[in-house]
Simulated scan of single mutants.
Amino acid sequence: MGLKSWRAARRRRKEEALERPRYGWIWKPLLALLGLYLLVSVALGIWWSQPPAAFDVEQATLERRGEAAYAPGARGTVSVATLAQSVATLLEKPGGYLRNDVAPPGVWLDNMPSWELGVLEESRRLALALPQMAGGDSAALVEAREALLGDDRDWLYPSTEQRLEEAVAALDRKLAALDDPEAGFPPGAGLGSWLASVAEGLDDLALRLAASVGGHEALTELAVDTESLPPPTPWYRVDNIFFEARGSGWALAQLLEGVQRDQADVLDEAGVRGEWERLLAELEMTQRRLWSPVVLNGSGFGVFANHSLVMALHMNRARDLAASLAERLAEPPAALAAPAEITETQPGEALLEDSVEPSEPVEPPVEAVERLEEEVVEPPPEALAAPEA
């Protein structure tokens, strides 16, 4: 009995000590600060998870060129400027680059880091194709390519943010070099190989999205070979693949529009302008607003939608269009391949032909002679001749 009363008295003394002012000012403010920190982190996480809006490629080109924008740029200017702006968006959007964060709220987020991965993958593909599209490698393109191919989760020195800044600076130097009209890209060079790599990336995304669909019956509409599907996607990673596909569609739509500005004559000559526009429209469909707070994987005509299945459908259509464009643009159009050589030799040849007189008269073809004989007008009859004065 005495032991119980001693323990009760000891517990009361501890409670009284904690209620004293000298202890109350420590733990209560700490709890308040912790609650405020969590509230701010949740609000920032919601704000940072909003993807940025698409930018105008022509306006972005003018801003990145600066004072040189008053003069026309060479072919390839808009493509390089669009790639630089896409990479800069990863740094300038709300929250900056979040994929390598190790502290809240970035470490809690997964949708926006997956979106950033999709943008980074498409930027890498174009950076790898730029030397072929430019007709030759350069120091600026090599630096941009190596910076973009680094680890996307590095947070120590050199961090991913630093490498992305180096890539943007290198692309800006290449953009300044394109102020010279003679430094432009060859018409249509490298378009086929770039679009082929884009088609491969879209096919991989479509397969991973299809792997998260519950039943294989839903894949018949997509004409997906179920035997080639990767392992089923865990339920907690379904939204990651979905937002990676959204980021890839966002970046690819911007890059395709920039390349279209530079290669408009090539697309018209090859007759693929309509197909190119359909590819852009298909990618824009992947950016429609997601009304649900989470990514759903419903079935059939049920209450809940199947977001992964819809995104896989758009990825498949975009893959087919990109593969078709890659085949049709594998070789640059012959009409645009060598216009300079014709303009250089034609004036001299024309002068030579005008100055040299033929040694022998050139007889017209037999068909031309017969046609001329038929067109000869016969003399009028004597009855219709002019009367004598």
Rank of each mutant, 00 (worst) to 15 (best):
residue 329 L to K: 09
residue 332 P to M: 08
residue 52 P to G: 02
residue 315 M to F: 07
residue 305 A to L: 07
residue 242 F to W: 06
residue 46 I to P: 01
residue 220 T to V: 12
residue 384 L to A: 13
residue 85 Q to R: 15
residue 139 A to K: 14
residue 268 D to I: 00
residue 209 L to Q: 03
residue 66 G to Q: 03
residue 9 A to C: 05
residue 64 R to M: 14
residue 326 A to Y: 04
residue 333 P to A: 08
residue 209 L to M: 04
residue 114 S to P: 00
residue 324 S to R: 10
residue 259 V to L: 15
residue 175 L to S: 05
residue 313 L to W: 10
residue 164 L to D: 02
residue 172 D to M: 01
residue 126 L to P: 02
residue 31 L to F: 08
residue 57 V to R: 10
residue 19 E to R: 14
residue 73 G to V: 01
residue 76 G to Q: 01
residue 250 W to L: 06
residue 104 P to N: 07
residue 56 D to S: 15
residue 64 R to I: 05
residue 85 Q to S: 14
residue 185 F to Y: 11
residue 387 P to R: 12
residue 265 D to M: 06
residue 132 Q to G: 13
residue 331 E to S: 13
residue 50 Q to V: 13
residue 78 V to L: 05
residue 270 A to I: 04
residue 241 I to N: 07
residue 79 S to A: 15
residue 69 A to E: 08
residue 104 P to K: 10
residue 68 A to T: 14
residue 274 G to L: 11
residue 354 D to P: 01
residue 259 V to N: 09
residue 162 Q to N: 03
residue 273 R to N: 07
residue 319 R to Y: 00
residue 38 L to G: 12
residue 281 A to V: 02
residue 49 S to C: 03
residue 189 A to Q: 02
residue 25 W to G: 14
residue 251 A to Q: 05
residue 86 S to N: 14
residue 67 E to N: 07
residue 324 S to A: 15
residue 8 A to E: 14
residue 371 R to F: 08
residue 96 G to A: 09
residue 311 M to N: 05
residue 226 T to V: 10
residue 132 Q to S: 11
residue 314 H to A: 07
residue 273 R to S: 15
residue 49 S to V: 02
residue 220 T to Q: 15
residue 99 R to K: 14
residue 91 L to E: 10
residue 227 E to T: 13
residue 350 A to D: 14
residue 294 V to Q: 06
residue 268 D to P: 04
residue 245 A to H: 08
residue 40 V to E: 11
residue 295 V to D: 04
residue 108 W to H: 09
residue 110 D to T: 13
residue 87 V to M: 03
residue 240 N to C: 01
residue 205 L to I: 10
residue 318 A to S: 15
residue 222 L to P: 11
residue 302 G to N: 00
residue 49 S to Q: 11
residue 302 G to C: 02
residue 147 A to V: 09
residue 195 L to W: 01
residue 206 A to T: 04
residue 221 E to Y: 09
residue 67 E to C: 00
residue 24 G to L: 15
residue 23 Y to D: 03
residue 10 R to F: 09
residue 292 S to E: 13
residue 388 E to Q: 10
residue 283 L to H: 10
residue 283 L to E: 02
residue 363 E to S: 10
residue 181 P to K: 00
residue 239 D to H: 15
residue 173 R to E: 10
residue 104 P to C: 03
residue 32 A to N: 04
residue 303 V to I: 11
residue 342 I to N: 08
residue 39 L to V: 06
residue 277 E to V: 05
residue 8 A to F: 11
residue 54 A to C: 08
residue 174 K to L: 12
residue 80 V to L: 04
residue 81 A to P: 04
residue 113 P to C: 06
residue 198 V to C: 08
residue 202 L to P: 00
residue 285 M to N: 12
residue 285 M to H: 08
residue 274 G to Y: 07
residue 273 R to Q: 13
residue 235 W to P: 07
residue 247 G to I: 03
residue 213 V to H: 00
residue 351 L to P: 01
residue 264 A to S: 08
residue 73 G to I: 01
residue 346 Q to T: 15
